[in-house]
Design a protein around this nucleic acid. Structure first.
Lengths: 197, 197
DNA sequence: GTCTATAAGCTGATAGAC
DNA sequence: GTCTATCAGCTTATAGAC
């Protein structure tokens, strides 16, 4: 198990991904240089290329991993009940999942234009899958009569924008607890979707 | 009225501002160079500095002008009636104003982190003024009994996020007209704010 | 696995000619 | 009012030493 001094592959790889995520979220993809990332990781810039093909891959992998994790986590919840209950479940899940991953969420929304066209299309497809999950709940609610939305596509976009917006102002330890924020947003979401009282 | 050949001050100044707005919105502040802007304006890079102190001023002026115009336009509407009517008016105004200025809106939301701390504070103050306009409507609605929101501050953030989200997907000539989108969003906004039916 | 050195080219901003 | 030339320093990515 002899190891060359300075050889820490198990640490450098993950640390690179964490650092890139954090710096991209803080300063923006275009404003962060590979040298800055290397300095925070604690290696020289050249060494980064043992762990990533290029800067673009750091961005794409961060966004892709985030979207895949989001979809997998939601599918693992598999909520039961009528559409009204599933909508409430979705709202709570969305707020909780996004609050726990502020940096990744921020990047996924702000750095789309810095993806190559191919990578942009792939992230767009993942996002559409997630939106489709909410839209199917709203459509089911219309059919059941437990929800009343004027247009399921627009309601999907409106509710996701509302829920994701929490990330722009919510800070742990502020005026309201995360649970209370969740309750208040659930109330507004159900009202917006015309849930039977 | 003699004028040197190549001297077109009345054109270059405004054209610089328009070009900077368009390129910042398309590619991001950090990704756009003064040389790129100059090429689109049709002058050499050095000439830009006759019309702007630096690149940062181009960004700040764009955001500041947008926010001032937004506030002035809303204050000029001065809607009458009960809070429910004023909320509907606000929703329609917000969608209309923002749809007409997609580039400026995009910059105002995406480029905050590229402002110097002083400029960031100034834009933040303008944004707070606009949010306060909506919050005062919601508070009035609570007092009158025409609206029912669990928390006026959160409802303000939620409704603005929902309404501004229209800009991320709305395109003129799509499935729904702007008027129809406006109607649908007004419906969801009033429901979310617990408007008396 | 990490380093140093390097390639080729870009950056914001200024000075001085015309 | 616009140009050219320039400064000092930055960029991504690679090659080869250790």
């Amino acid at each position: 198990m002899a190891r060359k001094p300075g050889s820490r592959a198990e640490i450098t790889g993950p640390k690179l991904r964490e650092t890139a995520l954090r710096l991209f979220a803080r300063d923006g993809y275009a404003a962060v240089s590979m040298r800055q990332i290397a300095a925070e990781v604690g290696v020289q810039a050249g060494a980064l290329y043992l762990y990533t093909a290029d800067k673009q891959s750091l961005l794409f992998d961060a966004m892709s991993d985030h979207m895949e994790a989001l979809l997998a986590a939601w599918r693992a919840e598999a909520p039961k009940g009528d559409a009204r209950d599933r909508l409430e479940h979705f709202a709570r899940f969305h707020i909780r999942f996004h609050a726990a991953r502020a940096d990744a969420v921020f990047i996924a929304y702000m750095e789309l234009r810095n993806l190559t066209p191919e990578n942009f299309a792939r992230i767009g497809a993942l996002r559409s899958c997630y939106e489709a999950e909410l839209e199917s709940i709203l459509r089911a609610g219309q059919d059941e009569g437990t929800l009343t939305v004027p247009d399921t596509k627009l309601a999907t976009m409106a509710l996701i924008a509302m829920l994701t917006g929490v990330n722009t102002w919510f800070r742990e330890g502020g005026r309201l607890s995360r649970d209370r924020v969740e309750d208040i947003y659930v109330d507004m979401v159900l009202n917006a979707a015309g849930a039977r009282v």
